[in-house]
Design a protein around this nucleic acid. Structure first.
Length: 496
RNA sequence: GGUUGGGUGGCCGAGUGGCUAGGCAAAGGUCUGCAAAACCUUGUACGGCGGUUCGAAUCCGCUCCCAACCUCCA
């Protein structure tokens, strides 16, 4: 593919041409979920966005190592209790049982959304040794200090006179940050409010704990990603991604830790996905403004009028750009559902299409080829899925016109048709990761096909006899059963 | 208060100086036994006020409003 991939780098706040560190290879790290709660829809949007990015990089011919962690330790509640432990206490389970349960659930959900699994999915608890080692290095380099068995990152030492160094990603300056509002007992141990823990001393009742050179404790909240990205992608790697809400402090601290340990930053390109909103506000675990994926699938929620297929939701997400907020509403989902159906129906009729064999100049074929190239070019522009889909829908009209006879199949050569079909299929299913559900049911589908053919033949006979009462009755009854009949030029087609 | 990003036609959502985004909805037409589908046509949309420019949704200034982050969160 001749065109260049550009992407928006949060670090520089502009679009840059993507140049991998090692030609032909991409190291991609994405901050994964915490697993003390069921996954919620906002996470799904982020991971669907990065799924498309991962898929597109592969389609560009890159060999991609995609690392996405599972956070199963280190996040504290307001009263200092580890969230894993809290979940375990509330459900009377082992902490690792909680982690496993929600990891499994998360994986199921990713499959439901047709998101590919990452190449490596490391767990924070599986990398305590690496994290301890990193703390050691940061200490050795003079960017941290130990107090009472805890180790804090020393932001002042890190800045070393350059007060814009810490905060370069998020545009923050430490003297502008709000004062720490939480009353953690550890606050008093810090030299500066903006210092953050990279190793914490465990109190006696803390369940998740490991031995370290500084006593029994657990790793800081942001250290795992620094340690694991370094381990699996190297001290320098290409792309680091995550949700916008992780920009500060999580990613800012990651950069500081990487520099603290390795004397230089890790990722070269930072990509941030924007929030999924509902009612104009962020969907949030904490304030109840949320709808779970399951509720969205079943329709069991005051926010939706019916259940939506996961692919409709995926399509809905792809109709906005990953860096924009997306406002979820029933009306918008209805629009997505209908649009997605129209897209699939056009795809399905394209599969039935035969080149006429008497094609001359292939005018329409050239149009289709150009439109498809335009769609791919949009993906090169910072993974612009909404624009790519806009180009695809222009092609949908062409396909339907060929199907409906408004355009002639004489204007497309067999070769053009084949290449177009392959290229469009690759874009829709391999890159955008959509699924053609209607044709995915195997034997059941085959049986239904045959039954429907019988019914449609009967109806066609009734129509030939001008028995409108019978033909309409068949059509209405099928509609009630959820099958839509469409009369075309060459007989009727149907869809569920 | 600070930081970052927004306010686009009935709804969702692209778009960063001039050329139709796209989807859904709506109106008219073609087709059809009727309908649906499909195709064709139709929208003087860019928060407000100034400014720069031959020309601004797009650049600049002011202003109003919204969201996220600054506390676990994709």
């Amino acid at each position: 593919m001749p065109s260049e991939l550009t992407l928006y780098n949060t670090l520089t706040r502009k679009k840059e041409v993507f140049q991998p560190l090692v030609e032909g290879h991409v190291g991609l790290y994405v901050c994964g979920p915490t697993v003390y709660n069921p996954v919620h829809l906002g996470n799904c949007r982020t991971f669907v966005s990065f799924d498309v990015i991962y898929r597109y990089l592969m389609a560009k011919g890159y060999k991609v190592r995609y690392v996405r962690n599972i956070t199963d330790v280190g996040h504290l509640t307001d009263d200092g209790e580890d969230r894993m432990s809290r979940g375990a206490r509330l459900e009377q389970l082992e902490p690792m049982e909680v982690a496993q349960k929600f990891s499994n659930q998360f994986h199921d959900m990713m499959r439901t959304f047709n998101a590919l699994p990452p190449s490596i999915e490391p767990r924070a608890t599986g990398h305590i040794i690496e994290q301890i080692e990193m703390v050691r290095e940061i200490l050795a380099n003079g960017y941290a200090y130990e107090v009472n068995g805890s180790v804090y990152f020393d932001v002042e030492a890190y800045n070393n006179g350059n007060d814009e160094r810490y905060g370069e990603l998020s545009g923050r300056r430490i003297d502008e940050l709000m004062a720490e509002s939480r009353e953690l007992k550890a606050q008093g141990e810090k030299r500066n409010p903006s210092d953050f823990a990279i190793w914490m001393n465990a109190s006696d009742d803390h369940i998740l704990r490991w031995d370290s050179p500084w006593g029994s404790g657990f790793p800081g909240w942001h250290l795992e990603c620094s340690a694991m990205s370094t381990k699996y992608l190297g001290e320098r790697f290409d792309i680091h991604g995550g949700g916008n809400d992780l920009k500060f402090p999580h990613h800012e601290n990651e950069i500081a830790q990487n520099v603290g340990a390795c004397q230089h930053a890790g990722a070269r390109y930072w990509l941030h996905t924007n929030m999924l909103l509902m009612n104009g506000k962020k969907m949030s675990k904490s304030d109840g403004n949320t709808i779970s994926p399951e509720e969205l699938f079943t329709g069991d929620s005051i926010h939706v009028s019916e259940g939506y297929d996961p692919m409709v939701i995926r399509f809905f997400m792809l109709q906005s750009h990953y860096r924009s907020t997306l406002d979820l509403s029933d009306e918008a989902l209805q629009a997505a559902k209908k649009g997605y159906q129209r897209l699939l129906e056009a795809w399905n009729s394209l599969q039935e299409m035969q080149a006429s064999g008497s094609a001359q100049n292939g005018t329409v074929g050239k149009e289709l080829t150009a439109g498809l190239e335009a769609a791919y070019a949009e993906m090169d522009d910072d993974f612009n899925t909404p624009k790519a889909l806009a180009r695809v829908f222009e092609l949908v009209s062409r396909i339907n016109a060929l199907q409906g006879g408004q355009l002639s199949l004489d204007e497309i050569t067999a070769r053009q048709l084949t290449e177009f079909r392959d290229g469009l299929g690759k874009l829709l299913f391999d890159i955008l990761g959509l699924q053609n559900r209607a044709s995915a049911n195997g034997a059941d589908r085959e049986a239904l096909d045959k039954v429907m053919q019988i019914v449609l033949d009967l109806r066609q006979q009734a129509r030939a006899d001008k028995d409108w009462a019978l033909s309409d009755k068949l059509r209405d009854a099928l509609q009630d059963a959820g099958v839509t009949v469409k009369d075309g030029k060459d007989g009727a087609t149907w869809s569920v």
